[in-house]
Structures are given as structure tokens and as C-alpha cells.
């Protein structure tokens, strides 16, 4: 979630984990809005979407042209994402321009263009599909998961990765291969190159990885502790079923 520097436009970044309460939700998403989404979920009903008023701070931009990206922080949690031109915030806000001074956002549902300069805040209406909130990263490596949504994601996009054992520091962790966009593995925050050390204290293997991830999409799913190494640092991640 923290850095999704993918090159394709049709990727919706899951935002606003802290805005899932009904108190903060905007009026219901209409079918007209759904029809105008920049990144719709194929065949989804309007009732599967929620909208949140969200304030973002533009920390800044980097680069020019196709490689340029902007770093935006949700001021309610300070969670950030890096987005490139063509990528979206939620399903409706598309980044259309990046310059040294700031960015331009286009809301596909209102047809409005908004500009924001580095260091400034902007209040926007973010529309998300339930899949975007299926596994939301909270503080200190805790993911809050929704089994029903994860099951639908798995059914539609598959588990989306595999792993192979490697030798590392006297252990045999399973190294994550390619992670398919939108897949269950992607939603659960796995990244290519992650070393999976243990799941609930047991070894992760190529043969049990799918079982472990699938477990989180089962109705009776409770929690899973996944120990992984990323960037040389071991992270004890907890998936907690909501």
C-alpha cells in the first residue's frame, strides 16, 4: 500500500482506512456516479461502493514526464501513497498532471479538475469499492480484513502469487514471486521479493501458501500472524478479521 509505483493507469489505490465509519461517509454513491468512475469494478452495483470526504496533503512531487509521481497523505491517518499520472485515488480521482509545484486531479464523477500545490491540503470525495477495503493496513503492521470481500476477490482475481524456498540466515523462507494486481495476495499487501518466514509459527512453503492466504477469506477466519522479511527487516504482520 505504501508505494505502488505501477505504470498502468487502471489501478485504484485503497485509501482512507480510517474513514470506514458510517459517520464520515458521504451520501450514497449513485448509479450515475458508478457509470462515470475512472476505475469501475466490473459489474458492481452502486451499493458496493462507498464515498468518503477525505483531506489529503500533498507532501510533494518528484520527477518529470512518465516517471513523475506525487506523494499524498491522508490527514486523518497520515498514510501516504505515491501515484503517477494516470493512476487514481479511489475509483474516481485521477492524477492528470504533475509538476514541480503541484498536481492536478480530475474527478471523473463530477468532471471537475482540482489543483493542489506541495504542502497544501485538498478536501475531496473518494469513492471506493468494497474490494478496496477488504484488507486495510493499520498502524504497526496490523491489517484489518473482511473475509467476505476477500472471498469475492479470490473468486474474481485468484490468489495471485506463489513462492519458492530460498536459503537465508540458516532458515528456508519462501520468497514471493510475481504478485498479480488486484489479486488476493496483492490486497493482503504481499510484494514480489518478500521472504515469508512463518505463519502462526509454522513454516511457509510453496504448497501451503495458497491455503494460508485462502484461510483469510473463509467466513470463520479469525487472524493470522505472518512473519516476513522485506528490505532486510523482519516484520511481524498481523491480519485481524473484522
Amino acid at each position: 500500500m505504501k508505494t505502488q509505483l505501477v505504470s498502468l493507469a487502471l489501478v485504484a489505490l485503497p485509501w482512507v482506512a480510517s474513514c470506514t465509519g458510517s459517520d464520515s461517509a458521504s451520501p450514497a454513491v449513485t448509479q450515475t456516479e458508478v457509470a462515470a468512475l475512472a476505475v469501475p469494478e466490473q459489474g458492481a452495483l452502486a451499493s458496493e461502493y462507498v464515498a468518503h470526504p477525505t483531506t489529503f496533503r500533498l507532501f510533494g512531487t518528484q520527477g518529470q514526464g512518465a516517471t513523475a509521481f506525487a506523494t499524498l497523505a491522508d490527514t486523518s491517518s497520515w498514510d501516504t501513497s505515491n501515484i503517477r499520472v494516470g493512476e487514481t485515488i479511489g475509483r474516481n480521482l485521477q492524477l492528470v498532471a504533475v509538476s514541480d509545484a503541484g498536481i492536478e486531479l480530475y474527478d471523473s464523477t463530477t468532471k471537475e479538475r482540482r489543483t493542489v500545490r506541495s504542502g497544501e491540503d485538498i478536501l475531496v470525495r473518494v469513492i471506493e469499492h468494497e474490494f478496496d477495503q477488504a484488507a486495510v493496513e493499520g498502524a504497526e503492521h496490523v491489517f484489518h480484513t473482511h473475509a467476505r470481500s476477500l472471498a469475492r476477490i479470490e473468486a474474481r482475481y485468484g490468489i495471485g502469487t506463489s513462492c519458492e524456498p530460498v536459503s537465508f540466515a540458516g532458515q528456508t523462507p519462501c520468497k514471493v514471486g510475481v504478485v498479480s494486481p488486484s489479486s488476493l495476495a496483492a490486497r493482503l499487501g504481499l510484494k514480489t521479493g518478500d521472504l515469508l518466514l512463518a505463519a502462526d509459527g509454522s513454516a511457509v512453503t510453496p504448497s501451503n501458501l495458497h491455503v494460508l492466504l485462502h484461510r483469510l477469506s473463509e467466513a470463520q477466519s479469525q487472524s493470522l500472524q505472518l512473519s516476513l522479511a522485506r528490505g532486510g527487516v523482519v516484520i511481524d504482520r498481523m491480519y485481524v478479521a473484522e
Binding site: 500500500m1 508505494t3 506523494t71 497520515w78 498514510d79 501516504t80
Partner: peptide, 15 residues
């Protein structure tokens, strides 16, 4: 928090 950045992610400086 291990892995934290000043800028990025949930465990950044502002967080």
C-alpha cells in the same frame, strides 16, 4: 517501528 519512513506508509513521521 521497523521499516518506517519519514514520508511513506502508515508508520511515517507524522503517523
Amino acid at each position: 517501528v521497523s521499516g518506517a519512513e519519514m514520508v511513506g506508509g502508515r508508520n511515517n513521521g507524522p503517523g
